[in-house]
Structure formats: structure tokens, C-alpha cells
């Protein structure tokens, strides 16, 4: 009897010891929180990225779409996850803009940066039910009917900031309607329920099919994918805008875990399959390591606060 008891105790001790030993990271699957519905543009970028990351990391990467409230629901969930490297968070500039516009209470500094991954330039897109074929026609119409042209946007997020910057640069006024995420905006713009929206090159197919109109792209130079679309700079508006997407982990994650993730990220961003799928989506693969990304984030944060202030949306 005693033997059995002592054996049991020994067994329990071994179990506890085994549990408390830090196993080599990662020893189980990793969850990647995408704070938007699947099928949106953020999801479209991180889904093709996940297999590469999985390979480089040596652990399964499971994407969890946690959408809602301009991406805030997912941000909160990521923030409250244990900082053990098993929860990653796919982020873009909205983390800054929603914070300053008062939509969200989560700040970028609640997380540790891992790497920057991609950059997607914004394109001003018009519904086929509108009569504008060029920016000039839109401008004239907007001047004639201030506050009447409806723009579908995720409020307080990048798709709100981009048209707001145009508004400011051109001295016009739009009317904003909440359409969260690119997919619902496309539904609405194809049906003519909104006039304008921010989109990107992923929608090129619909433009070619005559279902949508690209009016202007917010890059420095014209994009080789759509050479006929002028840049906003050419049109005399000093607006250059793109959405930068990267990975973060909750604050307090161990440095060596982040380093490991960053290394995996660097390797995965070089996968040819990933590059191919990004090219199709008009997105530039733009890897920055954790240090450079941290600095860049700080810059982006200041920029977004400035923007929010300029646009009269600053709430903090």
C-alpha cells in the first residue's frame, strides 16, 4: 500500500515538474487573431501567410476571425490573451486611428511588435450608378452638393481616414455611412446604395467587368497593375495613403519568443507562394523586423493622432 502511495506521489511530482519545465516554444498550435471577418482584405493577406509561418515556426497556425465594432472586439481579445506567444494578432493602422477617434480603448502599446508584413495602397472607388468617370467630375459634383455624396467606411478606421484626407485636401464634404469591412462595402457600392468608398487593387476584376470605377490611387507613382488610374498627387491632392499590416503579440511576451516569431515571419514573408498571392491583391510585401517595426509603429501612431486632430475626429 505504502509503495503505491509513494509511487503515486512520485508520479504526481514528475507530472508537476514536467508541467513547470519550459518546453521549447512552440510545442502546440498557435492562434492568429484576425480582427475582421474572413474574406476581408486583412484575412486575404494573412491566410496565404499562415502556411509559410507554420512551416518556419514548426507549429500549426490557426486563424481565428474575431470581427466586430471596427476591429475592436478582436483587439480586446488579443490584448487579454496570455502573453505566451501562442496568440498572435494581425493588425493594421486601425489600431491607431480607432484609438484616437475614441472607437476603441486598445492602444498599440498594449502589444509587442513582431514584424511588419505588407503595405496596400488605397484606391478611391466609385459606384457604377454614379455619373462620374473621373475625379474632376466627382469634385465638381461634390462642390455643388456638399454633404450629399455618401461614402461607405469603417468608422474611425483607415477606410474613414482616407476619404477624410481627400475631403480636407480638396475642400469638400462627404457623408459617411457605416459599412464595416470591404465585403459589405462592395455589396453596397455595386447596388448603388453608397457612392464612394476606399478599396484597393483586389477589386480590379470588378473594375474590368465595368461593375466599379477606380477614380484615383493614393500612391506616389501610378501602379503598374492599373496604369490608367491617376494618382491623387497628379490630381493636385497631396494624399498618399496605404494600409500597413503586421503581427503583434500581447504585452509581456518573452523576448526570445518574439525573436523566434520574428525570424519565422522573415522567412515566411519570402515564400514565393505568398509573394504571388500578394501581387494578385495589389499589395507590396514589406517586411520590417521587430525593432524597425516598433519605430515605424511609433511614427504611424503620431501620424494618426495628427490626422485625427486635423480631421476633427480626435477624442483623446
Amino acid at each position: 500500500m505504502r509503495k503505491i502511495v509513494s509511487l503515486g506521489v512520485l508520479f504526481a511530482l514528475v507530472l508537476v515538474a514536467a508541467a513547470s519545465l519550459p518546453a521549447a516554444y512552440p510545442d502546440r498550435p498557435v492562434k492568429l487573431i484576425v480582427p475582421w471577418a474572413a474574406g476581408g482584405d486583412t484575412d486575404n493577406i494573412f491566410r496565404p501567410f499562415a502556411p509559410g509561418l507554420q512551416k518556419a515556426l514548426g507549429a500549426t497556425v490557426v486563424i481565428a476571425n474575431v470581427g466586430g465594432a471596427s476591429g475592436t472586439v478582436g483587439a480586446r481579445e488579443a490584448k487579454n490573451s496570455p502573453p505566451d506567444g501562442y496568440t498572435l494578432y494581425a493588425v493594421h493602422d486601425y489600431i491607431h486611428s480607432t484609438y484616437y477617434t475614441g472607437v476603441s480603448d486598445v492602444k498599440y502599446s498594449d502589444f509587442e511588435p513582431v514584424c511588419l508584413l505588407s503595405s496596400t495602397p488605397s484606391v478611391l472607388t466609385a459606384s457604377p450608378k454614379t455619373k462620374w468617370t473621373s475625379w474632376q467630375e466627382l469634385l465638381a459634383d461634390a462642390k455643388a452638393r456638399p454633404g450629399q455624396i455618401s461614402v461607405g467606411a469603417t468608422l474611425g478606421s483607415t477606410s474613414h481616414f482616407f476619404p477624410a484626407l481627400i475631403e480636407k485636401a480638396a475642400g469638400i464634404k462627404f457623408k459617411y455611412v457605416s459599412y464595416e469591412g470591404l465585403a459589405p462595402r462592395m455589396n453596397a457600392i455595386l447596388g448603388g446604395h453608397i457612392d464612394l468608398t476606399d478599396s484597393n487593387l483586389t477589386q480590379k476584376g470588378k473594375v474590368d467587368a465595368g461593375q466599379l470605377r477606380f477614380l484615383a490611387i493614393a500612391t506616389e507613382k501610378r501602379s503598374p497593375e492599373i496604369p490608367s488610374v491617376p494618382t491623387l498627387k497628379e490630381l493636385g491632392l497631396n494624399v498618399v495613403f496605404s494600409v500597413e499590416r503586421g503581427l503583434m503579440v500581447p504585452k509581456g511576451t518573452a523576448g526570445d519568443v518574439i525573436a523566434k516569431l520574428d525570424a519565422a515571419c522573415a522567412q515566411a514573408s519570402k515564400e514565393p507562394a505568398f509573394a504571388e498571392s500578394m501581387k494578385k491583391q495589389g499589395t507590396e510585401v514589406r517586411y520590417l523586423d521587430r525593432k524597425a517595426y516598433a519605430e515605424y509603429q511609433k511614427k504611424l501612431d503620431d501620424l494618426n493622432r495628427e490626422l485625427a486632430k486635423d480631421l476633427g475626429l480626435l477624442k483623446r
Binding site: 507530472l15 508537476v16 514536467a18 508541467a19 502546440r28 498550435p29 492562434k31 500549426t60 490557426v62
Partner: peptide, 13 residues
């Protein structure tokens, strides 16, 4: 199916 089922906080199992 790569669905992670909860591990025990007390038992680590």
C-alpha cells in the same frame, strides 16, 4: 482538425 482543446490549468494535461 487542428482545433485546440483546453489544457488543464491545474493538471497541465
Amino acid at each position: 482538425l487542428s482545433v485546440l482543446l483546453p489544457r488543464g490549468r491545474w493538471t497541465a494535461f
